[in-house]
Protein backbone atom coordinates (compact mmCIF):
# COMPACT_ATOMS: atom_id res chain seq x y z
CA UNK A 1 0.00 0.00 0.00
CA UNK A 2 1.48 3.31 -0.98
CA UNK A 3 1.82 6.24 1.39
CA UNK A 4 -0.58 8.35 -0.66
CA UNK A 5 -3.24 5.71 -0.64
CA UNK A 6 -3.15 5.44 3.13
CA UNK A 7 -3.35 9.18 3.53
CA UNK A 8 -6.58 9.26 1.58
CA UNK A 9 -8.18 6.47 3.54
CA UNK A 10 -7.05 7.69 6.90
CA UNK A 11 -6.84 11.47 7.08
CA UNK A 12 -5.08 11.53 10.43
CA UNK A 13 -1.98 9.73 9.13
CA UNK A 14 -1.21 12.97 7.41
CA UNK A 15 -1.38 14.86 10.70
CA UNK A 16 0.81 12.36 12.48
CA UNK A 17 3.39 12.64 9.79
CA UNK A 18 3.55 16.35 10.43
CA UNK A 19 4.24 15.76 14.13
CA UNK A 20 6.75 13.02 13.54
CA UNK A 21 4.15 10.22 13.81
CA UNK A 22 5.10 9.41 17.40
CA UNK A 23 1.80 10.14 19.14
CA UNK A 24 -0.56 7.33 20.17
CA UNK A 25 -3.07 9.87 21.40
CA UNK A 26 -3.76 12.26 24.25
CA UNK A 27 -4.53 11.59 27.88
CA UNK A 28 -6.50 14.09 29.96
CA UNK A 29 -6.71 14.02 33.73
CA UNK A 30 -9.85 14.98 35.69
CA UNK A 31 -10.25 15.60 39.38
CA UNK A 32 -13.77 14.46 40.08
CA UNK A 33 -16.63 12.34 38.83
CA UNK A 34 -18.90 15.14 37.69
CA UNK A 35 -16.29 16.76 35.45
CA UNK A 36 -15.47 13.32 34.04
CA UNK A 37 -19.12 12.63 33.24
CA UNK A 38 -19.68 15.95 31.48
CA UNK A 39 -16.37 15.65 29.63
CA UNK A 40 -17.32 12.16 28.47
CA UNK A 41 -20.59 13.50 27.11
CA UNK A 42 -18.76 16.23 25.22
CA UNK A 43 -16.25 13.80 23.73
CA UNK A 44 -19.07 11.46 22.74
CA UNK A 45 -21.01 14.29 21.10
CA UNK A 46 -17.91 15.44 19.21
CA UNK A 47 -18.14 12.13 17.34
CA UNK A 48 -15.08 10.29 18.66
CA UNK A 49 -15.03 6.50 18.39
CA UNK A 50 -11.62 5.31 19.58
CA UNK A 51 -11.46 6.72 23.06
CA UNK A 52 -11.79 5.47 26.61
CA UNK A 53 -12.41 6.75 30.14
CA UNK A 54 -10.38 5.38 33.05
CA UNK A 55 -11.40 5.49 36.68
CA UNK A 56 -10.31 3.96 40.02
CA UNK A 57 -13.78 2.47 40.52
CA UNK A 58 -16.82 1.84 38.31
CA UNK A 59 -18.52 5.21 37.80
CA UNK A 60 -22.28 4.95 37.51
CA UNK A 61 -23.69 6.82 34.56
CA UNK A 62 -20.46 6.71 32.60
CA UNK A 63 -21.72 4.01 30.24
CA UNK A 64 -24.55 6.29 29.15
CA UNK A 65 -22.27 9.30 29.01
CA UNK A 66 -19.92 7.39 26.71
CA UNK A 67 -22.71 5.76 24.70
CA UNK A 68 -21.72 2.16 25.39
CA UNK A 69 -23.76 -0.92 24.55
CA UNK A 70 -24.75 -3.41 27.23
CA UNK A 71 -22.33 -6.34 27.32
CA UNK A 72 -23.19 -9.77 25.87
CA UNK A 73 -21.46 -11.50 28.78
CA UNK A 74 -24.70 -12.89 30.36
CA UNK A 75 -25.36 -14.89 27.17
CA UNK A 76 -21.91 -16.46 27.35
CA UNK A 77 -22.59 -17.41 30.97
CA UNK A 78 -25.95 -18.91 30.02
CA UNK A 79 -24.35 -20.99 27.28
CA UNK A 80 -21.65 -22.19 29.67
CA UNK A 81 -24.24 -23.05 32.33
CA UNK A 82 -26.27 -25.11 29.86
CA UNK A 83 -23.10 -26.88 28.73
CA UNK A 84 -22.30 -27.67 32.36
CA UNK A 85 -25.77 -29.02 32.98
CA UNK A 86 -25.64 -31.18 29.87
CA UNK A 87 -22.17 -32.48 30.81
CA UNK A 88 -23.46 -33.37 34.27
CA UNK A 89 -26.45 -35.25 32.88
CA UNK A 90 -24.30 -37.12 30.35
CA UNK A 91 -21.61 -37.92 32.92
CA UNK A 92 -23.97 -39.36 35.52
CA UNK A 93 -26.08 -41.19 32.92
CA UNK A 94 -23.15 -42.68 31.00
CA UNK A 95 -21.06 -43.74 33.99
CA UNK A 96 -23.83 -44.98 36.31
CA UNK A 97 -26.75 -45.98 34.07
CA UNK A 98 -25.15 -47.57 31.00
CA UNK A 99 -22.66 -50.32 30.23
CA UNK A 100 -22.38 -50.58 26.46
CA UNK A 101 -20.88 -53.66 24.84
CA UNK A 102 -17.98 -53.19 22.50
CA UNK A 103 -16.50 -50.22 24.32
CA UNK A 104 -13.05 -50.65 25.93
CA UNK A 105 -13.34 -51.76 29.55
CA UNK A 106 -11.85 -48.59 31.04
CA UNK A 107 -14.27 -46.35 29.16
CA UNK A 108 -17.43 -48.38 29.72
CA UNK A 109 -20.05 -47.30 32.27
CA UNK A 110 -20.37 -49.24 35.53
CA UNK A 111 -23.75 -50.43 36.81
CA UNK A 112 -23.84 -50.19 40.60
CA UNK A 113 -26.54 -52.16 42.40
CA UNK A 114 -27.38 -49.93 45.37
CA UNK A 115 -30.26 -51.20 47.54
CA UNK A 116 -32.43 -52.00 44.51
CA UNK A 117 -32.50 -48.46 43.20
CA UNK A 118 -32.83 -47.91 39.43
CA UNK A 119 -29.57 -47.38 37.55
CA UNK A 120 -30.93 -44.17 36.10
CA UNK A 121 -31.89 -42.52 39.41
CA UNK A 122 -32.14 -38.95 38.25
CA UNK A 123 -33.12 -37.28 41.58
CA UNK A 124 -29.97 -38.63 43.21
CA UNK A 125 -27.88 -37.27 40.33
CA UNK A 126 -29.18 -33.72 40.68
CA UNK A 127 -26.49 -32.50 43.15
CA UNK A 128 -23.52 -33.28 40.84
CA UNK A 129 -25.44 -31.92 37.83
CA UNK A 130 -26.26 -28.71 39.72
CA UNK A 131 -22.66 -28.24 40.86
CA UNK A 132 -21.32 -28.71 37.33
CA UNK A 133 -23.84 -26.16 36.03
CA UNK A 134 -22.59 -23.59 38.55
CA UNK A 135 -18.95 -24.45 37.93
CA UNK A 136 -19.15 -24.04 34.16
CA UNK A 137 -21.17 -20.80 34.50
CA UNK A 138 -18.59 -19.36 36.87
CA UNK A 139 -15.80 -20.22 34.45
CA UNK A 140 -17.85 -18.54 31.74
CA UNK A 141 -18.29 -15.37 33.79
CA UNK A 142 -14.64 -15.12 34.82
CA UNK A 143 -12.84 -16.15 31.65
CA UNK A 144 -15.53 -14.60 29.44
CA UNK A 145 -15.02 -11.25 31.16
CA UNK A 146 -11.24 -11.48 30.76
CA UNK A 147 -11.46 -12.50 27.12
CA UNK A 148 -13.92 -9.74 26.20
CA UNK A 149 -11.69 -7.22 27.98
CA UNK A 150 -8.62 -8.66 26.23
CA UNK A 151 -6.88 -9.28 29.53
CA UNK A 152 -4.22 -10.16 30.46
CA UNK A 153 -2.56 -7.42 28.42
CA UNK A 154 0.74 -6.43 29.93
CA UNK A 155 1.50 -3.65 27.51
CA UNK A 156 -0.59 -0.60 26.88
CA UNK A 157 0.46 2.97 26.01
CA UNK A 158 -1.41 4.49 28.98
CA UNK A 159 0.45 2.28 31.44
CA UNK A 160 3.74 3.93 30.45
CA UNK A 161 2.51 7.34 31.62
CA UNK A 162 3.59 8.23 35.15
CA UNK A 163 0.58 10.44 35.78
CA UNK A 164 -1.69 7.54 34.83
CA UNK A 165 -0.57 5.63 37.93
CA UNK A 166 -3.21 7.57 39.81
CA UNK A 167 -5.94 6.13 37.60
CA UNK A 168 -6.00 3.16 39.96
CA UNK A 169 -5.89 5.39 43.05
CA UNK A 170 -7.87 8.60 42.95
CA UNK A 171 -7.87 10.35 39.54
CA UNK A 172 -9.98 10.07 36.40
CA UNK A 173 -8.72 10.04 32.83
CA UNK A 174 -9.94 10.23 29.27
CA UNK A 175 -7.67 8.93 26.53
CA UNK A 176 -8.36 9.66 22.87
CA UNK A 177 -6.45 7.73 20.23
CA UNK A 178 -4.77 9.51 17.37
CA UNK A 179 -6.16 6.75 15.16
CA UNK A 180 -9.66 8.13 15.66
CA UNK A 181 -10.98 9.70 12.42
CA UNK A 182 -12.20 12.75 14.36
CA UNK A 183 -8.83 13.30 16.02
CA UNK A 184 -7.08 16.60 15.46
CA UNK A 185 -4.33 17.17 17.97
CA UNK A 186 -4.90 20.86 18.69
CA UNK A 187 -8.71 20.79 18.51
CA UNK A 188 -8.94 17.65 20.64
CA UNK A 189 -6.67 19.14 23.29
CA UNK A 190 -8.80 22.29 23.32
CA UNK A 191 -11.97 20.24 23.71
CA UNK A 192 -10.54 18.33 26.67
CA UNK A 193 -9.19 21.49 28.29
CA UNK A 194 -12.54 23.30 28.02
CA UNK A 195 -14.24 20.17 29.42
CA UNK A 196 -12.30 20.67 32.65
CA UNK A 197 -9.15 18.57 32.31
CA UNK A 198 -6.52 19.49 34.89
CA UNK A 199 -3.66 18.08 32.84
CA UNK A 200 -3.24 16.85 29.28
CA UNK A 201 -0.37 14.74 28.05
CA UNK A 202 0.58 13.16 24.79
CA UNK A 203 1.10 9.40 24.83
CA UNK A 204 3.82 7.50 23.02
CA UNK A 205 2.77 4.29 21.32
Amino acid sequence: MSEDHRAIQDPQTHLDAAEGATSWGVLAEFDDVETLLSAAEQVRDAGFRRWEAYSPFPVHGLDAAMGHQYTKLPWIVLACGLTGMLSGILLTWYTNATSFEGIPYALRGYLFHISGKPFWSFPAFIPPIFELTILFSAFGAFFGMLAMNRLPMFYHPVLKNLRFRRATQDKFFIGIEAADPAFDSSKTVDLLRSAGATAIEELEP
Binding site: E52, A53, Y54, S55, P56, P58, V59, L62, D63, M66, H68, L146, N149, L151, P152, M153, F154, Y155, H156, V158, L159, F164, A167, T168
Partner: peptide, 8 residues
Protein backbone atom coordinates in the same frame (compact mmCIF):
# COMPACT_ATOMS: atom_id res chain seq x y z
CA UNK B 1 -3.26 -8.85 34.41
CA UNK B 2 -2.61 -5.37 33.04
CA UNK B 3 -5.76 -3.87 34.54
CA UNK B 4 -6.04 -0.17 33.69
CA UNK B 5 -9.49 0.82 34.95
CA UNK B 6 -10.96 1.35 31.51
CA UNK B 7 -14.70 2.01 31.58
CA UNK B 8 -15.50 -0.75 29.08
Amino acid sequence: LGWRGSNR
